[in-house]
């Protein structure tokens, strides 16, 4: 599905400007950035998290993630937003919790992103 559809499905909204047509194939829900760094697939993976610090953006940058989705209305501060814009990482926020978010995305066809070792 597309980033724009992710926003629709989760009744969320975009926190910065990006191309809503970008493809999302995988979702990676996490509270541990090292886990993303170790196991995420590149390019079409959406990181789903409650963590809103700059390191989430850096992690997304290093693994070439398609974007970061914040659950429970968690919103990063201005500095983190600036960093996301600088390195070109799309940010989306939803008021839904982790369980519901992942359920809806999975039902819409997004696949688990943990690559098997």
């Amino acid at each position: 599905m597309r980033l724009g559809q992710v926003i629709q499905v989760l009744s969320g909204h975009a926190l910065n400007e990006f191309n809503h047509a970008r493809e999302v194939e995988y979702g990676f829900e996490t509270a541990l950035l090292s886990d993303v760094l170790a196991h995420a697939k590149p390019h079409t993976t959406l990181i789903i998290t409650e963590i809103v610090n700059p390191q989430v953006i850096r992690t997304a940058e290093m693994v070439d993630a398609v974007g970061v989705l914040f659950v429970k209305n968690k919103t990063p501060d201005a500095g983190t937003l600036r960093l996301a814009n600088e390195v070109g990482i799309p940010l989306i926020v939803t008021r839904l919790g982790m369980f519901e978010t992942c359920g809806k995305l999975y039902a819409a066809g997004v696949q688990p992103a943990r690559s098997s070792e």
Partner: peptide, 14 residues
């Protein structure tokens, strides 16, 4: 902050 899963060095090696 999202770090300290005991994975860093292993991931670097990988």
């Amino acid at each position: 902050l999202g770090f300290g899963g005991g994975m860093g060095l292993k991931n670097i090696r990988k």
